[in-house]
Computed example of a mutant assay.
Amino acid sequence: MNILITAGGTSERIDNVRSITNHSTGRLGKAIGECFLAQGHHVTYVTTPQAVRPVNQANLSIIEIETTKELASTLLNQFEQQSFDGIIHGMAVSDFTTETTLSEDIFIEKLAAKLTNDNTLNDLTSLTEALYHSLDEIGQTVQQAKKIPSGTDRLLLFLKKNPKIIAMLRDHQPQAVLVGFKLLVGVSFEELVHVGSALLTKNNCDFILANDLEQIHDKQHVGILIDATGQTTTAQTKSEIAQLIVNKVEEKWRSQS
């Protein structure tokens, strides 16, 4: 099988020396990749510079990205070049990317200037609309500094929503067995299954691996694999999750062939 795996956590640049990222280490993706490789499959492994990854070996191609935008362009490029039998989208993709940054003083000056020039702000509705419009304009301010000065007491960081990578996978690789991931924190088994099932349906996945951050520590990593029929299988460690995913993807692929 020809397998694509994404793993690690994307970073969104604030300036040339600062970024926003998440705590994903890529360890689960590494375990899944190694398990597929051990079964003789070819793996294209898309990851981030800070994440762990399988050791270089035959049948393994590693591609590094940093931002969500780079991830999207890399995947589209791969989809143009080859067809995948399975896609394991385990990367922790940033929900938001940076739009611009402003010091407190500059932000207040810009907002005050816009509002004082508007003579129609005579009720709450018009004031609210003006604020939304002003924030939208200010958010589009081009970030000029390569390194933001640290002299301000308060820095305002504007973030805008990233597109959902998982939403595009089925459209571009309709033949692939698609596995998505959902991480929640401090929820019940029922809630994990409910949210995971909704994500599976929304993005037309074959499987979703739902897990709770509070159930991930030391050698334990509880994961619930949900299929399109709603059936669940629970694993207790990263190696168990990896073997479970490989077995299920192989089984699904054989049934489609």
Score class of each variant (00 low, 15 high):
Thr67Pro: 03
Ser61Trp: 01
Leu71Gln: 04
Gln82Met: 11
Glu70Gln: 15
Leu75Tyr: 08
Ile65Phe: 00
Phe84Thr: 05
Phe79Ile: 01
Leu75Arg: 08
His89Arg: 11
Phe79Lys: 11
Thr67Asp: 04
His89Leu: 09
Gly90Trp: 00
Ser73Lys: 11
Ile87Gln: 06
Lys69Asn: 06
Glu66Trp: 00
Asn77Gln: 14
Ala92His: 09
Leu76Glu: 15
His89Glu: 13
Glu70Asn: 09
Asp85Ile: 10
Gln81Phe: 02
Glu70Leu: 03
Ile65Leu: 01
Ile65Met: 02
Leu71Asn: 03
Glu80Trp: 05
Thr68Glu: 11
Lys69Ile: 01
Glu66Lys: 02
Ala92Pro: 02
Thr67Glu: 05
Thr67Met: 14
Gln78Phe: 02
Ile65Gly: 04
Gly86Val: 12
Ser94Phe: 07
Leu76His: 15
His89Gly: 06
Asn77Trp: 04
Asp85Lys: 10
Ala92Arg: 02
Glu70Lys: 15
Leu60Asn: 08
Ala92Trp: 08
Ile88Gly: 04
Thr74Pro: 04
Ser61Ile: 09
Leu60Ser: 06
Gln78His: 07
Leu71Trp: 01
Ile63Met: 07
Thr68Tyr: 03
Leu76Val: 05
Glu66Leu: 00
Leu75Thr: 03
Asn77Ile: 03
Ala92Glu: 10
Gly90Tyr: 01
Glu66Asp: 06
Thr67Lys: 11
Leu71Tyr: 00
Asp85Ala: 12
Ile65Asp: 05
Ile88Trp: 02
Glu66Gln: 15
Ile87Gly: 03
Ile87His: 03
Met91Gln: 09
Asn77Glu: 12
Thr74Asn: 08
Gly86Ser: 12
Ser61Lys: 10
